[in-house]
Write a protein that binds this DNA or RNA. Structure first.
Length: 560
RNA sequence: UGGGGUGUCGCCAAGUUGGUAAGGCAACGGGUUUUGAUCCCGUCAUUGCGCAGGUUCGAGUCCUGCCACCCCAGCCA
């Protein structure tokens, strides 16, 4: 995992850490944490944070804790906990310790009593609506709650009774006593404990009051001895509160919160809320739908952990808003698969081709390379037969010379096999081409014909030996590059053609394709077995990404 | 009209104490090629680093003033 390609280029967070180490801060130690709330699946944006937090720690000989930020039992579940752990491990990272914010509930409670005793927290009995009213607005200061000056004894009594379950949800709340006139709204007496009579996935029914993020996170970081607490920019305004709590509690470990900008990627959405909607409304096939930017989706789509890590490294780490092009992600996975994926043949839109002068029942065994540039990947055998499938896009009844595929009356090479010539087209009742009758030149195996220049080379699959397979090709889930920035409801922005299912054929060797294998279907793209739906008897492939397609560009420009 | 941030090539992004604008992706030329892939070569910010002034022999880097965009008013995280 710790190859040089995983090293980040210069960024401001590394600069800070290097400086801290040079100055002997924290005794030169680096301990980070990744703190997901188990209320959804991890996505590529989380991968950025994971690579950063784990990456920085590893680079400086430190470690990273995985800590589930499980302070809101209403939205969380063990299903998400397990999915998150699996995704992080799959990405290639190992946490030092698995912790839960709920591990600290007892200590958090004691600290809360301490704050009350010191007059730094109070129980408010205003309704949620009133609290909102009293908070003021962005431009006007808030005003003190009438309960703000309750005595320490009363606060303590109330808080203990909150814990004991004497009150209903929403009846009381514990707030920090900071400054209702602060220009930073987060400092206007933030709530730190609310009553919730619900079972918690970790602590069961032990508690009916639950601490809130701002209070929990900094204390948890401190208790664990975190040195650098990396989070996204939305928490920048919360840093004064983070620091306030640790200072007032006089914690002996005061981690440094550092914020960076979150990832925005073209043609997708990154908010857990929207992802959850897509899943729950059945617009996709679960959290691991290959069109989703979730780690699980990317895994099922065929992305590799190394490619995702490389992507995270290449997008960099800054505080500026960023809009990363999908092309970068695609470029990275292509680059990784180019070297590692063995080549095979697969035809997505099959049309049968019959070579009339090739003897029926005969086979010519061809030894073909698994990789054009890497002999160590070996060879495999393919049988050339009288009937083969080629892709419909690789045949035209007429075309100009720029079209380097099969044209009626002209020649083309079937890759690794013979040069053939299209002689006649057979149509079905609907007028569609049902079959292409051809002839072949037996003297063209491994050599070019004399005096003629063949248009090009196309791939094929033996009709006699090929395996039928379902091949799924994906396009972006959304029709606009940044759905979040669009005023329209996201339902209107869904790309109805994000999934195309082909009933095609693949070469026999793919029968033994494994779940972790990636292949390049020559001239088509990179593919993998669909981990959810593929079976031995009915193969299902996902297209990870297409090959770079300059022909499509030429075609689009009106070149042919 | 409050507070917190950010503005360097179409996108991402480097740019330590001012010294004369990295790299990647994309794009565009060309070469190799039994994958229109890969690979290789070349072009791609020349009084230019949001704008306007200023300091300086010299500023993306310092100062002043503007402008634009993002985040914040959950008993969510």
């Amino acid at each position: 995992m710790s190859s040089t390609t995983d090293k980040y280029p210069s960024n401001f967070i590394r600069t800070i850490i290097e400086k801290d180490i040079a100055e002997g801060k924290n005794g030169g130690a680096v301990l980070t944490r990744f703190p997901p709330e188990p209320n959804g699946y991890l996505h590529i944006g989380h991968a950025k944070a994971i690579c950063l937090s784990f990456g920085m720690a590893e680079e400086f000989g430190g470690a990273t804790n995985l800590r589930f930020d499980d302070t809101n039992p209403l939205k969380e579940s063990v299903e998400f906990i397990n999915a998150i752990k699996r995704d992080i491990e799959w990405l290639g990272f190992q946490w030092k310790e698995e912790r839960y914010a709920s591990d600290y509930f007892p200590q958090l409670y004691e600290f809360a009593e301490q704050l009350i005793r010191e007059g730094k927290a109070y129980v408010d009995s205003l309704s949620a609506e009133d609290i909102r009213e009293y908070r003021g607005t962005l431009t006007e200061p808030g005003k003190d709650s009438p309960y703000r000056d309750r005595s320490v004894d009363e606060n303590l009594d109330l808080f203990r009774r909150m814990k004991a379950g004497e009150f209903a949800d929403g009846e009381h709340i514990l707030r920090l006593k900071i400054d209702m006139a602060s220009p930073n709204i987060n400092m206007r007496d933030p709530a730190i404990y609310r009553i919730r009579h619900v079972e918690h996935h970790q602590t069961g029914n032990e508690w009916c009051i639950y601490p809130m993020y701002d209070y929990t996170h900094c204390v948890s970081d401190s208790l664990e001895g975190i040195t650098h607490s990396l989070c996204d920019l939305s928490f920048e305004d919360h840093r004064p509160l983070y620091d306030w709590v640790l200072d007032e509690l006089a914690m002996n470990c005061h981690p440094q919160q550092i914020e960076f900008s979150r990832l925005n990627l073209q043609y997708t959405v990154m908010s857990k809320r929207k992802l959850r909607q897509l899943v729950e409304e059945g617009m996709v096939d679960g959290w691991d739908d290959p069109r989703l930017p979730t780690i699980s989706g990317l895994r099922r789509r065929g992305y590799t952990p190394a490619a995702i890590r490389d992507f995270c490294r290449r997008i960099g780490v800054t505080k500026s808003d960023n809009n990363v092009e999908l092309a970068l992600l695609q470029s990275v996975i292509r680059e990784h698969l180019e070297d590692s994926a063995p080549r095979v043949f697969g035809v997505l839109n099959p049309v049968k081709l019959v070579i009339e002068n090739f003897p029926e029942g005969e086979k010519v065994a061809l030894t073909v390379a698994n990789h054009p540039k890497d002999e160590s990947m070996g060879t495999r055998e393919l049988n050339f037969t009288r009937e083969v499938f080629i892709d419909r896009d690789d045949f035209r009844e007429e075309a100009n010379r720029k079209y380097k595929r099969l044209v009626l009356g002209d020649e083309v090479r079937l890759r690794y096999g013979f040069v053939i010539k299209a002689e006649e087209v057979i149509r079905d009742d609907s007028g569609e081409i049902a079959e292409i009758r051809c002839s072949y030149d037996p003297d063209t195996l491994g050599k070019n014909p004399e005096g003629r220049k063949v248009r090009g080379v196309i791939h094929w699959v033996s009709a006699e030996e090929g395996l039928p397979a379902e091949i799924r090709v994906y396009e972006p889930l959304f029709t606009v590059d940044f759905p979040d920035a669009d005023d329209r409801d996201y339902h209107e922005l869904i790309n109805s053609e994000s999934l195309t299912v082909h009933q095609g054929f693949v070469e026999p060797s793919l029968q033994k394709a494994g779940l972790d294998d990636r292949f390049q279907f020559e001239r088509e793209g990179y593919f993998c077995i669909d981990s959810k739906d593929s079976t031995e008897g009915s193969l299902v492939f996902n297209r990870v990404v297409g090959l770079r397609d300059t022909w499509a560009k030429i075609e689009k420009a009106g070149g042919a």
